[in-house]
Amino acid sequence: MSRKFEGDRILIATHNAGKLEEMSELFAPLGITVVGAKEMQLEEPEETEDTFIGNARIKAHAAVKATGLPALADDSGIQVAALDNAPGVYTADWAETPNGRDFIMAMNKTHDLLEQANAPHPRAARFCATLVLAWPDGHDEVVEGFVDGTFVWPMRGETGHGYDPIFQPLGETRTFAEMSHDEKNSMSHRSDAFKKLLSQCFE
């Protein structure tokens, strides 16, 4: 049986400002105070698993151990069908540079690989999000969310973060980066996972 969350403060185990903002907006109607890992001066744990669930668990439990607060961790990424679902769990790794993450570079890399593979259009893609909510006693709850779409080129839009400028959800004419925060949050993979988490742990 799923455990219900009864506190009024939750740690979001991410240093990603975009993810933290998105989570803060999703939690706002619940009256739950959100604090980020950077604000708590937490180090980022090494993500050694090869699944979204495994890496989300690492982050959630590390944050709980460091703070004693219930923690919610996200591990997410984009899967491109013609690249055997790469980059997947390595989405952020593809953006790593000595000076931080460069998602423009990562999107160019993905496009170049699709061109080298002569992948046909439309180029199916899927955003995946896994949320793990962990408690200090070691219990956790896991949910997964998805949104299907296509990889589009060139990049379009100025909002959002990560791969948003090249992802066009099915049924839409705009990329995530061309939508407002509210529009994206209503249909994103993280929103899908969050709705499942609400049903599982908060309602």
Rank of each mutant, 00 (worst) to 15 (best):
residue 122 P to T: 11
residue 122 P to N: 12
residue 122 P to F: 11
residue 123 R to Y: 00
residue 123 R to G: 00
residue 124 A to R: 14
residue 124 A to S: 14
residue 125 A to V: 06
residue 125 A to L: 00
residue 126 R to I: 11
residue 126 R to G: 06
residue 126 R to T: 14
residue 126 R to N: 13
residue 127 F to N: 11
residue 127 F to A: 12
residue 128 C to D: 14
residue 128 C to Q: 14
residue 128 C to T: 15
residue 129 A to C: 15
residue 129 A to M: 09
residue 129 A to T: 13
residue 130 T to M: 06
residue 130 T to K: 00
residue 130 T to W: 03
residue 130 T to S: 04
residue 131 L to E: 12
residue 132 V to T: 04
residue 132 V to K: 09
residue 132 V to R: 00
residue 133 L to Q: 07
residue 133 L to Y: 06
residue 133 L to R: 08
residue 134 A to G: 14
residue 134 A to M: 12
residue 134 A to F: 13
residue 134 A to R: 11
residue 135 W to Y: 05
residue 135 W to K: 01
residue 135 W to V: 01
residue 135 W to H: 02
residue 135 W to D: 03
residue 136 P to W: 06
residue 136 P to A: 08
residue 136 P to Q: 09
residue 136 P to V: 04
residue 137 D to A: 12
residue 138 G to I: 05
residue 138 G to T: 08
residue 138 G to V: 06
residue 139 H to A: 13
residue 139 H to W: 13
residue 139 H to P: 00
residue 140 D to W: 09
residue 140 D to N: 14
residue 140 D to L: 04
residue 140 D to S: 14
residue 141 E to C: 02
residue 141 E to V: 09
residue 141 E to Y: 02
residue 142 V to L: 09
residue 142 V to E: 10
residue 142 V to Q: 08
residue 142 V to K: 00
residue 143 V to R: 04
residue 143 V to C: 11
residue 143 V to E: 05
residue 144 E to T: 05
residue 144 E to I: 01
residue 145 G to M: 10
residue 145 G to P: 05
residue 145 G to F: 06
residue 146 F to M: 12
residue 146 F to Y: 15
residue 147 V to N: 10
residue 147 V to G: 06
residue 147 V to S: 04
residue 147 V to R: 05
residue 148 D to Q: 10
residue 149 G to F: 07
residue 149 G to D: 02
residue 149 G to Q: 09
residue 150 T to F: 14
residue 150 T to Y: 15
residue 150 T to G: 10
residue 151 F to E: 07
residue 152 V to R: 10
residue 152 V to H: 06
residue 152 V to Y: 04
residue 153 W to Y: 13
residue 153 W to Q: 03
residue 153 W to R: 08
residue 153 W to T: 07
residue 153 W to E: 05
residue 154 P to V: 06
residue 155 M to R: 10
residue 155 M to W: 07
residue 155 M to Q: 07
